[in-house]
């Protein structure tokens, strides 16, 4: 069949358009793709996590616009900042640090050190979640509840939504730790750990943003 195509008489002018061969619509020798190709997987995972983070960002963009619109209007009584939030912020920042440290250990071919760092990260992450719950308790003790006033509603809503996403990150981190213990990661190939770290740092940055938004911006 292909040879039949060859027998056509030469064109008066070259064929144009997307159907024409070799016009930038992908060569015939594009790089190999498919599930068998090990080169592709890291890119897939990063695109997937990038898409997740885009969706998470849109969720908080929606919350932010609602918050900023509401703050303009009457009846806005700010709540007092629970002091434990400072501690929580430090804990979460530290957890990002330990995550990066774990990755650096892995790259330097020290899997035991990496596992250690991951364990610290998970511990600090869990401590942050507990600290957030403590902040809620602190506010509740002052008589400030979810429905008390607009600011408290947004405080509980935003910290709650962030906390749920961080719990998701903890689940992913647990999977990474299990896999690290099974030596599934090598200094050269540790996509799972890398994308988990990306998500974790995003949660970290998101918290800094929300903290600033709720009390300073």
């Amino acid at each position: 069949m292909p040879t039949e195509l060859l027998k056509e008489k030469p064109a008066a002018r070259p064929r144009r358009g997307p159907g024409a061969p070799g016009r930038g619509y992908g060569g015939d020798g594009a790089r190999p793709r498919g599930p068998e190709s090990p080169v592709v997987a890291p890119l897939t995972a990063f695109i997937a996590v990038g898409a997740v983070l885009a969706a998470v960002a849109m969720l908080f963009v929606a919350f932010t616009t609602a918050y900023l619109a509401r703050r303009q209007e009457a009846g806005w009584t700010p709540i007092a900042l629970p002091a434990v939030l400072w501690l929580n912020t430090a804990v979460l920042l530290a957890s990002s640090g330990t995550f990066e440290w774990a990755r650096a250990r892995l790259v330097r071919a020290d899997p035991a050190g990496a596992r250690h760092g991951l364990g610290w990260t998970a511990g600090l992450g869990a401590a942050f979640v507990i600290g957030q719950l403590a902040a809620w308790r602190q506010l509740a003790a002052q008589g400030v509840y979810l429905a008390s006033n607009p600011h408290s509603s947004f405080f509980y809503l935003l910290t709650g939504a962030h906390g749920l996403h961080l719990l998701g990150g903890l689940v992913a981190l647990a999977v990474v730790i299990v896999r690290a213990h099974r030596n599934r990661y090598t200094p050269a190939a540790h996509t799972g750990l890398a994308v988990c770290a990306l998500y974790w740092h995003f949660m970290d940055a998101l918290w800094l943003y929300l903290f600033a938004l709720l009390f300073w911006l």
């Binding site: 992908g26 020798g29 790089r31 592709v40 890119l43």
Partner: peptide, 10 residues
């Protein structure tokens, strides 16, 4: 990421 060989976006 999973397109067949030669199947560019275009």
């Amino acid at each position: 990421n999973m397109r067949a060989r030669g199947l560019s976006m275009g």
